[in-house]
């Protein structure tokens, strides 16, 4: 973790320079699925990511009640249910218990972006899965280690992205890091590590 001493970093996530920086990291992880980025903001990763993405134009669902009342107004997003939301924040440790929007054939971009909070990504994912990934953004194959992800998410995702261009795009985050799994990424679940 960087920036521990930086007093600006904690509230910086609401300011344009930090949001630009986080967006560029988001751009990187969506461009190269499976790569893990460090969150530069001194706050919860999921909050920093949401802060850089949402405003009054988007809807946001929080089916597992992770967002506190003081945060909602800052995100500006319209609260809604997971079946209609543009963005969904969920606890990846729990079984998947909702049906997100996968978009329409004419407008597949309305498929949801699901921000999943997991225990750990990358090196410290002991006790989790090794995901074997391929698809656009990946030269051949790559691997992503995840722990604290309920297996139901991977099963459900496989169904949701089966009919491209329909689908959902996943953004996984732990306390300090995040990685993306766009709908185009093929995932094979490897062994438990």
């Amino acid at each position: 973790m960087s920036n521990v001493q930086n007093p600006m970093a904690s509230h910086g996530l609401w300011l344009p320079p930090m949001q630009q920086q986080i967006f560029r990291d988001l751009l990187h992880v969506f461009s190269y699925p499976g790569r893990v980025a460090e969150c530069t903001a001194e706050s919860m990763t999921w909050l920093a990511l949401l802060a850089s993405l949402t405003d009054g134009e988007v809807s946001l669902a929080d089916p597992h009640g992770l967002i506190t009342a003081d945060i909602w107004p800052k995100l500006e997003a319209r609260p809604t249910t997971p079946d209609t939301a543009t963005f969904i924040l969920a606890d990846g440790g729990r079984a998947m218990d909702f049906q997100p929007c996968t978009g329409s054939l004419e407008s597949p971009e309305t498929g949801a972006t699901i921000l999943l909070r997991v225990a750990a990504l990358g090196e410290d994912s002991a006790g989790g899965f090794q995901l074997n990934l391929s698809g656009p953004g990946i030269q051949g194959h790559t691997e992503l280690a995840v722990s604290g992800l309920h297996p139901s998410w991977l099963i459900a995702r496989a169904g949701l992205v089966a009919a491209f261009p329909l689908g959902v795009d996943l953004l996984l985050c732990d306390e300090h890091r995040f990685a993306a799994l766009p709908r185009t990424t093929r995932i094979e679940t490897g062994e438990i590590i």
């Binding site: 344009p16 988001l26 751009l27 969506f30 971009e109 972006t113 795009d169 185009t184």
Partner: peptide, 14 residues
Amino acid sequence: KKEVRRTILKAICI
């Protein structure tokens, strides 16, 4: 800017 950024991410995903 945020709207363009969100659109870019979806464009990469599709």
